[in-house]
Amino acid sequence: MTPSPAILAALIAALFYALSDVCLRNALRFATPISACIATAAVEWVGFTALALAGGLFSALTLTGFLWFPWRVFRTPFFF
Protein backbone atom coordinates (compact mmCIF):
# COMPACT_ATOMS: atom_id res chain seq x y z
CA MET A 1 0.00 0.00 0.00
CA THR A 2 1.27 3.45 -0.90
CA PRO A 3 2.18 5.48 2.21
CA SER A 4 -0.09 8.51 2.64
CA PRO A 5 2.85 10.99 2.77
CA ALA A 6 3.81 9.81 -0.74
CA ILE A 7 0.26 10.36 -2.01
CA LEU A 8 0.12 13.80 -0.41
CA ALA A 9 3.52 14.76 -1.83
CA ALA A 10 2.51 13.56 -5.31
CA LEU A 11 -0.70 15.61 -5.25
CA ILE A 12 1.18 18.68 -4.00
CA ALA A 13 3.61 18.15 -6.88
CA ALA A 14 0.71 17.97 -9.35
CA LEU A 15 -0.77 21.22 -8.04
CA PHE A 16 2.52 23.11 -8.13
CA TYR A 17 3.49 21.72 -11.54
CA ALA A 18 0.20 23.10 -12.83
CA LEU A 19 0.91 26.53 -11.33
CA SER A 20 4.39 26.43 -12.87
CA ASP A 21 2.95 25.49 -16.27
CA VAL A 22 0.51 28.39 -16.19
CA CYS A 23 3.33 30.82 -15.31
CA LEU A 24 5.46 29.40 -18.13
CA ARG A 25 2.57 29.79 -20.54
CA ASN A 26 2.62 33.50 -19.79
CA ALA A 27 6.42 33.71 -19.86
CA LEU A 28 6.54 32.20 -23.34
CA ARG A 29 5.04 35.39 -24.72
CA PHE A 30 8.32 37.11 -23.86
CA ALA A 31 10.94 34.36 -24.19
CA THR A 32 11.83 31.43 -26.42
CA PRO A 33 11.23 27.94 -24.96
CA ILE A 34 14.94 27.27 -24.48
CA SER A 35 15.48 30.64 -22.78
CA ALA A 36 12.53 29.93 -20.49
CA CYS A 37 14.04 26.50 -19.69
CA ILE A 38 17.40 28.00 -18.77
CA ALA A 39 15.92 30.83 -16.71
CA THR A 40 13.58 28.49 -14.82
CA ALA A 41 16.41 26.05 -14.16
CA ALA A 42 18.54 28.95 -12.90
CA VAL A 43 15.85 29.96 -10.40
CA GLU A 44 15.53 26.36 -9.25
CA TRP A 45 19.31 25.94 -8.99
CA VAL A 46 19.69 29.03 -6.78
CA GLY A 47 16.88 27.86 -4.52
CA PHE A 48 18.02 24.25 -4.20
CA THR A 49 21.66 25.25 -3.75
CA ALA A 50 20.66 27.52 -0.86
CA LEU A 51 18.60 24.74 0.73
CA ALA A 52 21.34 22.13 0.24
CA LEU A 53 23.96 24.47 1.71
CA ALA A 54 21.72 25.26 4.66
CA GLY A 55 21.21 21.55 5.25
CA GLY A 56 24.90 20.69 4.87
CA LEU A 57 24.06 18.04 2.29
CA PHE A 58 26.91 18.47 -0.17
CA SER A 59 29.35 16.46 1.95
CA ALA A 60 27.12 13.41 1.36
CA LEU A 61 27.25 13.63 -2.44
CA THR A 62 29.23 10.87 -4.15
CA LEU A 63 30.58 10.73 -7.71
CA THR A 64 28.37 7.72 -8.44
CA GLY A 65 25.32 9.65 -7.31
CA PHE A 66 26.22 12.63 -9.46
CA LEU A 67 26.90 10.54 -12.56
CA TRP A 68 23.62 8.63 -12.42
CA PHE A 69 21.71 11.77 -13.31
CA PRO A 70 23.29 12.52 -16.70
CA TRP A 71 21.22 9.55 -17.85
CA ARG A 72 18.18 11.61 -16.95
CA VAL A 73 19.62 14.71 -18.61
CA PHE A 74 20.77 12.77 -21.67
CA ARG A 75 17.27 11.86 -22.72
CA THR A 76 16.01 15.34 -21.89
CA PRO A 77 16.71 17.12 -25.18
CA PHE A 78 15.30 14.38 -27.32
CA PHE A 79 12.22 13.37 -25.44
CA PHE A 80 11.31 15.91 -22.80
Binding site: A9, Y17, L19, A27, F30, A31, V43
Partner: peptide, 29 residues
Protein backbone atom coordinates in the same frame (compact mmCIF):
# COMPACT_ATOMS: atom_id res chain seq x y z
CA UNK B 1 17.99 33.22 -26.70
CA UNK B 2 15.18 35.76 -27.03
CA UNK B 3 14.35 36.85 -23.49
CA UNK B 4 12.58 40.11 -22.67
CA UNK B 5 13.85 40.21 -19.12
CA UNK B 6 11.62 42.94 -17.74
CA UNK B 7 8.42 41.22 -18.89
CA UNK B 8 9.52 37.58 -18.64
CA UNK B 9 10.99 37.49 -15.11
CA UNK B 10 7.67 38.25 -13.34
CA UNK B 11 6.45 34.93 -14.78
CA UNK B 12 9.71 32.96 -14.79
CA UNK B 13 10.46 33.59 -11.10
CA UNK B 14 7.15 32.16 -9.81
CA UNK B 15 7.41 29.36 -12.41
CA UNK B 16 10.81 28.41 -10.99
CA UNK B 17 9.68 28.64 -7.38
CA UNK B 18 6.54 26.58 -7.89
CA UNK B 19 8.52 24.05 -9.95
CA UNK B 20 10.94 23.81 -7.00
CA UNK B 21 8.14 22.78 -4.67
CA UNK B 22 6.83 20.32 -7.26
CA UNK B 23 10.23 18.79 -7.98
CA UNK B 24 11.08 18.35 -4.33
CA UNK B 25 7.66 16.78 -3.69
CA UNK B 26 8.21 14.28 -6.52
CA UNK B 27 11.67 13.31 -5.27
CA UNK B 28 10.36 13.00 -1.73
CA UNK B 29 7.44 10.83 -2.86
Amino acid sequence: FRFEARRAWPWIAPAGLTAMVALYSVFYA
